[in-house]
Design a binder for these strands. Sequence first.
DNA 1: CATGACCGTGATACTAATACCGGTATAAGA
DNA 2: TCTTATACCGGTATTAGTATCACGGTCATG
Lengths: 88, 88
Amino acid sequence: MVRTPLTPLERARGLQLGALLRGARGERSIGHVAIAAGLSPETLRKIETGRAPTPAFFTIAALALELGLSLDEVAAVCALPDPDALSA
Amino acid sequence: MVRTPLTPLERARGLQLGALLRGARGERSIGHVAIAAGLSPETLRKIETGRAPTPAFFTIAALALELGLSLDEVAAVCALPDPDALSA
DNA sequence: CATGACCGTGATACTAATACCGGTATAAGA
DNA sequence: TCTTATACCGGTATTAGTATCACGGTCATG
C-alpha cells in the first residue's frame, strides 16, 4: 500500500467540515457560492456532503473567504477532540 | 479536459506556501516535523519545495498547528494580491 | 402543461497528493 | 574509514480531488 486510504476518522472530519460550510452558506445557493469561490457546484456539493472529505487547502481557503469564515475556526471545529464521539 | 491542470499561478502559490512553512520550521528537521504533524517526510519535502503545490487542507492545518502558524496568516501570505508580481 | 432554475446523485475522465523505494551528497561522530 | 543522520531527487504505486456529463426530482412561473 502506497497511499493510505482515508480512515473513518478522516471521513468523519470531512462530514463535520461539510456541515460547517453548509451552515455558513445559509440561504445562498450552492452554485452561486461555488462560482464565487472559483470552483464547480458539483465539487462544493461533494465537499458539503462529505464525499470529498479532504479537499485542497486553497479550495477551503477560497470558500472560507467567500463565506466570511476563519480558517483557524474551521480547523478547530474539525479537530475531533475525542474519537468516541463517532461511535456514540 | 476534466480536471484542470494546475496553472502557473497555483504553482507559484505553492512555492510561497512552501517557503513560508520552511521558514516557520526553523532548525527542526523535516523528518521530525513531518512525523509530529502526521505525514511522511517525503510529503513535507514536496510541499516545502513546491512540488505539491495544492496540499490537502488538513495536511496544512496539522503543519500549521505543529509550527505554531495561523491558517489565516498562511492563506493571506499565499493570496497573491497581483499576478504581475510573477512576471516581475 | 411547458419551461426554466435550482438541488442531488451517479458515472466517467483526468490530474494531483501521498507514500514507499532506491540512489546520491554532505556533515558529524566513533 | 565507517557509520549515522539528514536532505534532495527520481521513479513508482495507489487513492483522492476536481470537472464534465447525464439523469431525475422539486418548485416557481409562463
